[in-house]
Each structure stands twice: as structure tokens, then as C-alpha cells.
Amino acid sequence: MSIRTPFSMRLNEAERQVLEERAGAMPLAAYIKSVVLAEDAPRYRKRRTPPIAEQQLLAEVLARLGQSRTANNLNQIAKHLNQGTLVVDEELEADLKAALADVAWMRVTLMRALGVSS
């Protein structure tokens, strides 16, 4: 004997009226089950699983994010900029250029993995 679990569905008045009219003398729940569980009931596509190449690109971006302190470094730079204590020296300039390159690479790689043209 299988356990029956309840299923709830919200309908507005017009939707319920249409279903009741279509069900005729048949109980509404029985009618809904007969339509939904029918062999010729519409089937929707399964979710598309990304191809291996796309998964590899996404993994590369996640790995780079995990290894990088870019987000933290940019946050610290913004903090000093807002406080008026930012001193731009050669090291900071190099860090900013590296961060920009990382962000640009991530953007291009994510767009490619998602199949979006730039």
C-alpha cells in the first residue's frame, strides 16, 4: 500500500470554473489526475545540462576567483579612496592593472561559457 501525499494547487475562480465544466460529473481531483497523468499529456524539456567545455570554463573562473584576492583588494582600494587616504604608487598601479585584467578575463570567459557574444 502506498502512502498518499497531498498536493495543493491554487486556482482563480475562472480557472476553477473551467475545470469544473470540463470535469462534468467526474470529481474534480479525478478529472485533473486523468488529464495530467494521461499518456499524451504535454511534456516539457528537461533542463539543459551545460556541455563539458562550458563546465570547464566555469570551473576555471571559479578556481581563479578562489585563488584571487581581487575582490578584497578592490574593496580595500575603494575604502581608502572614499577616506581620501589612497596613495597611488607603482605597486598599487600594477595591482589595479592586474585586477582589471582578472575581471576582464572572467567576463569574457563567463560570456563564452554561457554562449553570449560580446
Rank of each mutant, 00 (worst) to 15 (best):
A23I: 14
A23Q: 13
A23K: 09
G24S: 11
G24C: 12
G24R: 14
G24K: 10
A25M: 13
A25N: 15
M26Y: 08
M26V: 15
M26K: 15
M26G: 12
P27Y: 11
P27C: 08
P27L: 11
L28I: 15
A29Q: 14
A29R: 13
Y31I: 09
I32C: 10
K33P: 02
S34I: 05
S34K: 10
S34C: 06
S34P: 04
S34E: 13
V35H: 05
V35F: 03
L37I: 07
A38E: 10
D40Y: 03
D40P: 02
D40H: 06
D40Q: 07
A41D: 09
P42L: 09
R43S: 12
R43M: 06
R43L: 07
K46D: 14
K46R: 14
K46S: 15
K46V: 08
R47P: 06
R48D: 11
R48C: 08
P50N: 12
P50D: 15
P50E: 13
P51T: 01
P51W: 01
I52E: 15
A53H: 14
A53Q: 14
A53S: 14
Q55A: 09
Q55I: 04
Q55G: 06
Q56Y: 01
L57N: 00
L58I: 09
E60A: 10
V61G: 00
V61H: 01
V61R: 01
L62Q: 10
L62C: 03
A63W: 05
L65P: 00
L65R: 10
L65H: 03
G66H: 03
G66S: 02
G66C: 01
Q67S: 10
S68C: 01
S68R: 00
S68G: 03
S68T: 00
S68M: 01
R69V: 00
R69H: 06
T70M: 04
T70H: 00
A71L: 09
N73I: 05
N73M: 08
L74T: 00
L74K: 00
L74Q: 02
N75I: 00
N75G: 13
N75C: 04
N75V: 05
Q76P: 02
Q76G: 06
I77G: 01
I77V: 14
I77F: 12
I77W: 02
A78N: 06
A78V: 06
A78C: 11
K79Q: 13
H80M: 11
L81P: 02
N82R: 14
Q83W: 04
Q83C: 06
Q83Y: 09
L86T: 03
L86Q: 07
V87S: 11
V87T: 13
V88I: 15
D89H: 04
E90M: 08
E90G: 09
L92T: 04
E93M: 10
E93C: 08
E93V: 03
A94H: 08
L96S: 03
L96M: 13
A99T: 03
